[in-house]
Write a protein that binds this DNA or RNA. Structure first.
Length: 804
DNA sequence: AGCACGCCGACT
DNA sequence: GTCGGCGTGCTC
């Protein structure tokens, strides 16, 4: 009987986006499992692949089928659930199956491909230029020759068959190992050794004697040295006698810097208890149910999560908690670690590749029961999930912007169906989609209307900056805000100033002609980097030195404009010279951990004012903050995005929630040029539902989600005319295939009209129910792949885009 | 995708 | 004559 494995190979391309059959060699049959990574020959090269099925026959002719070269995992890295989920993701988001599989694993498990040159003859026969390279080893990375401009020589040698070229597959990440000492498990052996040690070797005798009390134990050498005040020479000698041995042991890199104190449950309010009861009830009934936990800021959503997780752990199940990347601050993770201790793994982008790998392995090996992480943690390889939580469910970071373009919320609901467990979507300002679904009883709505400590909500004042201007105040601070800041400074209370600014990166502007330095390849302003006096494009990496004169008009009045935070900082210094200000922006939070350090410093009262952009809007919870100032609420309101009002409302509500969370009452001052806008008016009264009704009305009229679904088709080409022409073709094609109640908008130029020298056009499809949509899009993609791709067109499809 | 094979023009 | 340009086609 033969064993054949279906393998998805690590090549992201349409023609190979299907399983390939490989022979499983006899010696591998008993360890081969679905979900393992394997090394396989594919055409002329070696690639990594995932085993997605095993069978005993094949349609592939025997002369074509090749054997698997190697298994890379003893334990499969993907469960059956994940293999199913990958297929679903592939259909749901239109991506390659390999992309769907890779996104579930830490990048350490991805393959690294290297080309290696192997010597095939005696070194002496080589041309002199190559000889030195092969003196130490017969195998040398091709990279080495590339670096030293020896590619022509290698090419020649290859032709003459003096060397050969091979593609090797390596794993990126390594398991970290440390050397430990294992003490001999047999007393008799130790006694014998002890008796044989010469009387002069006192330290050795002492050490072996001590080992009697630690028979069979594994410990770090350093501990032994300290315990017995001895050295490595002594240990070495004893090991040579056989009393112990060195072993390599796997360890986890520890991303947690400090220990946390254990905390206990807090008492729940009636509202919290009711919510918790409904969730645990669903867990008991083993029902896949989605809850929308709508709780105002400070209403104690996290405590509900924590107690629901505790219940889940009691049942012997596991929990997944997602939080937006930006609020994955120590404040948040510590709350979980202090409640569940070593049972928690944390996954976010701040960790190194190795650290992420280790956190993932803790989950994979069943060492932890709770995962707290950003978007991709939704793929935590638990096999018995009892609850899934998405905190701040409205956040756009839950949608991945590149392939596979999945939404963590959809994956969460898929997994909840698989495991028959509840999902909790928590937010003070739910996305319209989710709230609408809760109204239609698709989700179960749980509401927390009061703050857990019964504090009143902060008072919110909206200041019309046009009036300020009329009164001759041209600064960024209204009189109202200046007065409020002055009072806090006197009372020694803390202030958070929030600069809601789009494109908050620094740029370079000519003050004579108004030119802003632009990228050569993209339709984007260059970002100024103070550290090396360079301007960089954040989309393609293009970089230039800051010019002395304007490239347009040669004027030397060229000046860089900061994040805005620097300018605000200067103004504060003028108005309140005594105030201690902490500025938090891309400049001050570049290095690892600086974000945490700044927050810690602020929490410890080392500054009076915290000044920053988006990143300070979340998770900030310090008792002494009593004033929040929003310097300009308008910028996010005027973005060309149908979610602009929703985002502004969410942001304002979010930042307002930072004030007066504890005993001291809070105040919020919002400065704006459009106080009459409903997003700002309703943020002032801090009521979600009136905003929801109003915004739903707008969406209904404009034909946007949640009334309609969206799909975005993007087409790009090096040549403007080609891009425009084919975008038009795509739109016409879709119009001819899809029914009349679907509206297709465009083609129009994309938000960033040129990226990496490609001109970008897009079409927006709005639809209600269209079972034909995905098949039609697949047909379009087929057309594109068979024909358009040759002409240099690139077409992408984003189902349910968040940004347009 | 990435690599081999294959068929045409410009160089030692 | 050969080197190398990129069109075509395949990968178990």
């Amino acid at each position: 009987m033969i064993t054949v494995a279906e393998v998805i190979v690590d090549v992201a391309a349409y023609p190979v986006d299907r399983p390939f059959d490989y022979l499983v060699p006899a010696e591998m049959t008993n360890i081969m499992e679905c979900g393992s990574r394997v090394k396989v020959p594919f055409g002329p090269r070696n690639v990594l692949g995932f085993v997605v099925a095993l069978k005993n026959d094949t349609d592939v002719p025997l002369e074509k089928i090749k054997p698997i070269t190697q298994i890379l995992d003893i334990e499969p890295v993907l469960t059956g659930e994940m293999l199913q989920l990958a297929k679903w993701l592939k259909n749901e988001t239109i991506c390659y199956e390999i992309d769907a599989l890779q996104v579930m694993l830490p990048s350490a498990l991805r393959a690294k491909y290297e080309k290696v040159i192997t010597l095939q003859t005696d070194v002496e026969h080589l041309p002199s230029s190559l000889k030195e390279w092969f003196e130490k080893s017969e195998r040398v990375y091709l990279k080495q020759f590339e670096k030293n401009n020896l590619l022509p020589d290698i090419k020649k040698a290859l032709k003459e068959k003096m060397v050969s070229l091979e593609n090797v597959v390596q794993q990126k990440g390594k398991v970290k190992e440390v050397r430990k000492v294992r003490i001999c498990p047999e007393r008799e052996t130790l006694t014998e050794i002890f008796n044989n040690i010469s009387k002069r070797a006192k330290k050795q005798k002492l050490l072996v004697e001590w080992m009697f009390n630690h028979v069979g134990e594994i410990m770090e050498p350093d501990i032994i040295y300290k315990e017995l005040n001895t050295s490595s020479q002594v240990l070495q000698a004893v090991i040579e006698l056989g009393a112990a041995s060195f072993i390599q042991q796997e360890v986890y890199r520890d991303p947690f810097t400090k220990d946390v104190k254990k905390t206990d449950f807090l008492n729940l309010t009636d509202e919290q208890s009711t919510a918790l009861y409904k969730i645990t009830d669903a867990m008991n009934r083993k029902q896949p149910e989605t809850f929308l936990l709508h709780g105002i800021t400070g209403s104690g959503k996290t405590e509900v999560y924590l107690q629901a997780i505790a219940k889940c752990l009691e049942e012997g199940k596991e929990a997944i908690v997602l939080v937006p990347e930006i609020s994955l601050t120590p404040q948040m993770t510590e709350r979980f670690r202090s409640r569940f201790g070593e049972l928690v793994a944390v996954m976010h982008s701040g960790l190194s590749v190795g650290e992420k790998y280790d956190e993932w392995r803790k989950v994979h090996q069943g060492k932890v029961k709770v995962v707290v992480g950003a978007r991709s943690a939704i793929f935590a390889p638990f096999e018995n999930v009892g609850i899934i939580i998405l905190d701040e469910e409205h956040e756009s970071t839950y949608k991945q912007e590149d392939s596979p373009r999945y939404h963590a919320r959809d994956v969460a609901i898929w997994r909840s169906n698989y495991h028959s467990c509840p999902v909790i979507l928590g937010s003070a300002t739910p996305s319209l989609e989710s709230f609408a679904r809760s109204k239609k009883k698709v989700y179960t709505l749980l509401t927390l209307k009061e703050r857990a400590l019964k504090q009143s909500l902060p008072t919110v004042q909206v200041v019309d900056m046009r009036d300020e201007l009329k009164q001759g105040n041209r600064s960024m601070f209204s009189q109202q805000l200046v007065e409020s800041i002055r009072i806090r400074l006197e009372r020694k209370e803390q202030i958070v100033l929030f600069l809601n600014r789009r494109g908050y990166s620094a740029f370079v502007l000519c003050r004579d002609c108004g030119t802003v330095l632009q990228c050569e390849n993209c339709d984007i302003s260059l970002t100024y980097h103070r550290s090396n006096e360079k301007c960089k494009c954040h989309y393609c990496g293009y970089e230039i030195h800051v010019p002395k004169t304007c490239p347009q008009c040669q004027s030397d009045h060229i000046r860089f404009f900061g994040t805005g935070t620097q300018k605000v900082e200067e103004e504060i210094a003028k108005l309140f010279p005594e105030a201690r200000v902490l500025r938090m922006d891309v400049d001050t939070t570049k290095t690892k951990g600086s974000h945490e350090q700044l927050l810690q410093a602020f929490g410890d009262g080392e500054a009076d004012i915290l000044l920053g952009t988006q990143m300070i809007a979340k998770g900030l919870d310090y008792p002494n903050i009593t004033l929040v100032g929003v310097l300009s609420a308008d910028t996010s309101l005027h973005l060309p995005d149908f979610r602009a009002a929703e985002k502004t409302f969410q942001l304002l509500t979010q930042v307002s929630g930072r004030a007066g969370r504890h005993s001291k009452p809070g105040e919020v001052v919002i400065q704006t040029y459009t106080p009459e806008h409903y997003a700002i008016e309703l943020a002032k009264s801090q009521e979600y539902e009136p905003f929801y009704e109003r915004e739903m009305h707008m969406r209904h009229q404009a034909g946007y989600p949640p009334y309609y679904y969206l799909a975005l088709i993007q087409i790009s080409h090096h040549d403007v005319m080609m891009a425009a022409e084919y975008a038009g073709k795509a739109a016409d094609w879709l119009r001819s295939k899809l029914s009349f109640n679907i509206s297709i908008i465009g083609p129009t130029t994309a938000g960033i009209s040129r990226l990496q020298n490609r001109y970008r056009y897009q079409c927006l499809i709005k639809y209600k129910i269209e079972p034909n949509l995905i098949p039609t899009l697949l047909q379009l993609i087929k057309l594109y792949r068979s024909d358009w791709i040759k002409k240099g067109i690139i077409l992408t499809v984003d189902l349910d885009p968040t940004m347009i």
